[in-house]
Design a protein around this nucleic acid. Structure first.
Lengths: 169, 169
DNA sequence: CCGAATTGTTTTAAGCCTAAAATGTTTTCC
DNA sequence: GGAAAACATTTTAGGCTTAAAACAATTCGG
């Protein structure tokens, strides 16, 4: 124990410093790094292989899961982005022929959007390749790692949602 | 083993369906959801409490760890954003008096930026509160959860970097 | 030493993104 | 029925972000 003299302040002052949340902070930064890294990689590959942006791809992914279409609000909630953001994104995808947008018959406030035939075909083509990229990016994780990460991230999501709810009920 | 009849297609058809990466895809989406959720929460709180944007805060956080300053390239690598992005961010923070920017004496290509006294003081004030937000967002994770997540995310980061490196060596 | 690659930064063009205000529509609740 | 609240979307203003091209300064190899 001759090294005790070299101990860090952060260790010795555990009592005086009321709360030490350095671990959580490091965890958050690591989480952010992982996401940024993977996102950047996916963004670059989508652009190079298919000349499509990540937000466009994400929006098409939402619509592919909803054959009967979605409202802009639905999309905005699912993608966790602002309403105004979706408006512009949809505009450009309608323009390029990937999306079909029509006003709901029963509620004239609502715009329902769907993938066009072209949009669906292109998305499926991209999604197939996209899936292999993701698999490759996570390739060093064992199935057990994946399960465990899924579990811990579910817990994280629940914790964050609870905390966010406390502030904005 | 009487339950074998109930086995899922994804298990029984392992040979016919060449590769099933649905699990990794779900993991990626969950990772993204967690990050987006927390990031949005932090962004909102920074804006409401301190009227500062998240990118500005992130940049100041980098500089707070480097008392002798950093070059724009350093910052861009650390933050994992493009060079041009940093240029604009720095411009606005110099304008508002939070950053000091000067050309290196030894290499006239290089711009060295530092926090000003004001910038450092403001950042410290924000960082203290920011740390409690993060702690709160992760509050439901046990110390063991945190350690395990750190480990698995480190593994994820390494895996993703390896995969990214294979594409762009 | 000098041309060629390399490195650091800025510029450009386009798109993404947010918060807040504005607009139009429907529902609610007297 | 009609005012008020709630809802869905768009608009606005400003900032963020990227990829690629342009520019400037340094280093490298012959």
């Amino acid at each position: 124990m001759s090294d005790c003299i070299e101990m860090l302040d952060s260790e010795t002052k555990a009592v005086e410093t009321p709360e030490d949340h350095a671990e959580e902070l490091r965890l958050w930064l690591r989480l952010l790094t992982c996401t940024t890294l993977i996102e950047g990689e996916v963004r670059g590959r989508l652009r190079q292989r298919f000349d499509v942006t990540l937000p466009r791809f994400d929006l098409m992914a939402q619509l592919d899961k909803a054959p009967d279409g979605m409202t802009l609000s639905d999309v905005s909630k699912r993608m966790m982005v602002s309403n105004g953001n979706v408006t512009g994104l949809v505009e450009r995808l309608v323009e390029s022929g990937h999306l079909d947008r029509r006003t709901s018959e029963t509620d004239r406030r609502v715009q329902v959007i769907r993938l066009t035939k072209l949009g669906r075909a292109e998305f499926r083509r991209m999604a197939a390749e996209h899936e292999t990229w993701i698999a490759d990016l996570f390739a060093d994780l064992t199935p057990k790692d994946v399960r465990e990460l899924m579990r811990l991230l579910a817990k994280t999501k629940a914790s964050a949602q609870k905390s966010a709810g406390r502030r904005r009920p």
